[in-house]
Computed example of a mutant assay.
Amino acid sequence: MELTTVWFILIAVLWTGYFVLEGFDFGVGILLPFLSRDDTERRTMVRTIGPVWDGNEVWLLVAGGATFAAFPEWYATLFSGFYLPLFLILLALIMRGVALEYRGKSDSTRGWDRAFFWGSLVPAVLWGVAFANIVAGVPLDADHEYTGTLFTLLGPFALLGGLATLLLFTQHGAIFLALRTTGELRRRAVRASRVLVPATMLVVMGFLVLARSGPLSWVAVGMAFAGLLGAVLATAAGRDGWAFTASAVAIVGFVAALFTSLWPNVMPALDPANSLTVTNAASNPYTLTVMTWVAAFFTPVILGYQAWTYWVFRRRLTGAV
């Protein structure tokens, strides 16, 4: 297998890890004003992600760094053409991080909770918009420069992608809260998950069917459907752990469907002659070789540390502070 293919797959894996782990963080923030009844419950919801949210964001940093090093042309075109949406995502993530750190140090938490909500909602929508545009293709010239405007990125298919990730992450967050809490808060999370199920399945599957291209993407679409269905059945049976696993599988299938539809492009152009591919966007073979050795050494270390963190903070939380 060529190193360009290896790194395309690794970047897909990094985005998958980010969406699976950061997805429930976004979901918790989006659900905060709807599931909590008082400050104690809001504090409990925040505590469910308190030990892990910043570690989950490492996946985004590594995905961005890997894209810059392995496919610099892709990185340059993406960040110049999608500058404003990505800037808004960055601002939202900063606002969310500040809210999570400072809400426990302030006498009034209402403002920080609003910041947490909006800092979760905006990325949950805009990541879907961004990836929908990447898969569908954007206007690029012969120098691989983006020639569209902000409104070019806000077409119906892109907005459907934003709605798909919003619903997918919100349901993922509801299932995570059901897994990590007890009592009335858990019951509300379970009810929220059941309410979200029909819309999530309809929108996510509709988006993936429109985005798919090739037999492998159909397999990934099937995985996403099986994961969503499994989450429904496990939630109905009160098996919170299996429900969360199934929800994670749905997100894995979702990302896999996008990347398999994208291959062998990394940034399709409306004019196929101007598309960026794994070949013309890649770094030189020496750079990819060095990166491969570094990834082979450090990836198991990072995965082991993060798995240990989740194991340590695995117990359910009650409403007590």
Rank of each mutant, 00 (worst) to 15 (best):
residue 20 V to H: 05
residue 21 L to V: 13
residue 22 E to Y: 14
residue 23 G to N: 08
residue 23 G to S: 07
residue 23 G to H: 10
residue 25 D to C: 05
residue 26 F to Q: 05
residue 26 F to R: 05
residue 26 F to I: 02
residue 28 V to W: 00
residue 28 V to H: 01
residue 28 V to D: 00
residue 29 G to A: 06
residue 29 G to D: 07
residue 30 I to Q: 03
residue 30 I to H: 04
residue 31 L to Q: 12
residue 31 L to K: 13
residue 32 L to T: 15
residue 32 L to F: 12
residue 33 P to S: 04
residue 33 P to C: 02
residue 34 F to Y: 08
residue 35 L to C: 02
residue 36 S to F: 00
residue 36 S to K: 01
residue 37 R to F: 05
residue 38 D to Y: 01
residue 39 D to A: 07
residue 39 D to T: 12
residue 39 D to C: 00
residue 40 T to W: 06
residue 40 T to S: 13
residue 40 T to N: 10
residue 41 E to V: 01
residue 42 R to L: 03
residue 42 R to W: 09
residue 42 R to I: 05
residue 42 R to D: 03
residue 42 R to C: 03
residue 43 R to F: 04
residue 43 R to G: 11
residue 44 T to E: 01
residue 44 T to A: 07
residue 44 T to M: 02
residue 44 T to P: 01
residue 44 T to H: 03
residue 45 M to E: 06
residue 45 M to F: 09
residue 45 M to C: 04
residue 45 M to Y: 08
residue 46 V to K: 11
residue 46 V to A: 13
residue 46 V to E: 12
residue 47 R to K: 10
residue 47 R to W: 02
residue 48 T to W: 03
residue 48 T to Q: 05
residue 49 I to D: 03
residue 49 I to K: 07
residue 49 I to E: 04
residue 50 G to H: 12
residue 51 P to S: 03
residue 52 V to W: 07
residue 52 V to Y: 05
residue 52 V to N: 04
residue 52 V to D: 03
residue 55 G to W: 11
residue 56 N to E: 09
residue 56 N to M: 07
residue 56 N to D: 06
residue 57 E to T: 14
residue 57 E to R: 15
residue 57 E to D: 15
residue 57 E to L: 12
residue 59 W to G: 09
residue 60 L to W: 12
residue 60 L to C: 07
residue 60 L to G: 04
residue 60 L to Y: 13
residue 60 L to I: 12
